[in-house]
Simulated scan of single mutants.
Amino acid sequence: MERWYGIDTVPADLTGSVVTIGNFDGVHLGHRAVLADVVDTAHTYGARSVAVTFDPHPAAVHRPDSAPELLTGLTDRLDLIAETGIDACLVISYSESFAAQSPKEFVRHCLVDVLRVRCVVVGEDVRFGQGNSGDRSTMAELGERLGFDVRLVRDVTAADERRWSSTWVRELLAAGDCAGAAAVLGRPHRMRGLVVHGQARGRELGFPTANLATDASGTVPADGVYAGWLLRDPARVGPGEAVRRPAAISIGTNPTFDGTVRQVEAHVLGRRDLDLYDEQVVVEFVRRLRPTVRFDGIEALVEQMRADVLEAADVLEVPRPEQLPAVQ
């Protein structure tokens, strides 16, 4: 997938496109349905399939104090969009001045003049232009006036008829229900961040962890211990090393040690030798094993950590580690 950062980077020789517009936070199953329709429609028109998205998220510009935590950072959002088969994604830098454009100004300049749009594929809740004043009816009217078709994709819903949405995923993650979130996303929820030095308590107890920096991208699920995966950059992995490793992931403040800083840290099952410092990794959450609790001493904590590792292996359907640190 080609990635165009800014309207001025779109190739001048683009002859036609089928376009959809959205924030695509999380790229959940509803987004994927729209993006898949764009790909299919583009084949019909003999044109390029293009997704238009925004960075930062509009809510971060208009209401920064109450903007939701994003499910995915830009890197993962684009990677997930690419998985749908879209030919190109245009990332527009969102600002107050950009938001001041009327729906017609945005459509004429961005879609018609730059992307040479032949068809716009929209979901039922599409909004665009100043004050979000443009909707699907506005797009249809502009299509008639400016010479492009408009195709509506109906909302995709779950079995209980609730509409797939980023808000729903956030609710599930806030409850620690990563399995439920994965059902809406169509994949495990993920975070991406740099591995930084922590207190090294896990290493001292025999369970070294990769601590994500506090600016890691992706919504942090509820405090607790999770079974999941740690993914490394293939360029950083040596011969014979797996890119994707099973992990037990802890989220919380380490209450046994009176911690105050909330951390996300992942222990790769059966590995005490990995040096991941200053490496960017992805952590995927599969299932919550238990809530975060305070233990009465190191012995009880280590005993529970041993149980967590074994349970994580069972959940992930991987072999249990043969050797585990002894209870102190």
Score class of each variant (00 low, 15 high):
102 S>C: 05
102 S>N: 05
103 P>L: 10
104 K>R: 15
104 K>L: 01
105 E>D: 13
106 F>V: 05
107 V>C: 06
107 V>T: 15
110 C>H: 11
110 C>K: 01
112 V>L: 08
113 D>H: 06
114 V>F: 04
115 L>G: 04
116 R>L: 07
117 V>T: 14
119 C>V: 01
119 C>T: 14
120 V>T: 14
120 V>R: 14
120 V>N: 10
120 V>F: 11
121 V>D: 08
121 V>F: 09
122 V>Q: 03
122 V>K: 03
124 E>I: 07
124 E>G: 03
125 D>N: 15
125 D>V: 04
127 R>F: 02
127 R>H: 12
127 R>K: 13
130 Q>L: 12
133 S>E: 14
133 S>W: 05
134 G>F: 11
134 G>I: 10
135 D>M: 11
135 D>V: 10
135 D>I: 06
136 R>Y: 03
137 S>W: 01
137 S>D: 11
137 S>R: 12
138 T>V: 09
139 M>Q: 10
139 M>R: 12
139 M>S: 09
139 M>K: 08
139 M>Y: 05
141 E>P: 01
142 L>C: 06
143 G>Q: 04
143 G>C: 07
144 E>M: 03
146 L>W: 09
147 G>C: 07
147 G>Q: 02
147 G>R: 07
149 D>I: 00
150 V>P: 12
150 V>Y: 00
150 V>K: 01
151 R>K: 15
152 L>M: 11
153 V>A: 03
154 R>D: 14
155 D>E: 04
156 V>P: 00
157 T>G: 00
157 T>V: 15
157 T>W: 02
157 T>L: 01
158 A>V: 02
159 A>S: 13
160 D>A: 03
160 D>P: 05
160 D>S: 06
160 D>T: 13
161 E>N: 12
161 E>R: 15
161 E>M: 08
162 R>V: 13
162 R>D: 08
165 S>V: 03
166 S>F: 06
166 S>M: 09
167 T>Y: 05
167 T>M: 01
169 V>A: 02
170 R>P: 04
170 R>V: 11
170 R>I: 06
171 E>M: 06
173 L>G: 08
174 A>H: 12
174 A>R: 12
174 A>G: 13
174 A>Y: 04
175 A>L: 09
175 A>E: 14
176 G>K: 05
176 G>L: 08
176 G>R: 05
176 G>N: 08
177 D>Q: 11
179 A>V: 09
180 G>A: 08
180 G>N: 11
181 A>T: 03
182 A>D: 02
183 A>L: 08
183 A>R: 11
184 V>K: 00
184 V>F: 01
185 L>N: 05
185 L>F: 03
186 G>D: 09
187 R>W: 07
187 R>N: 04
187 R>V: 00
187 R>D: 05
187 R>M: 07
188 P>H: 13
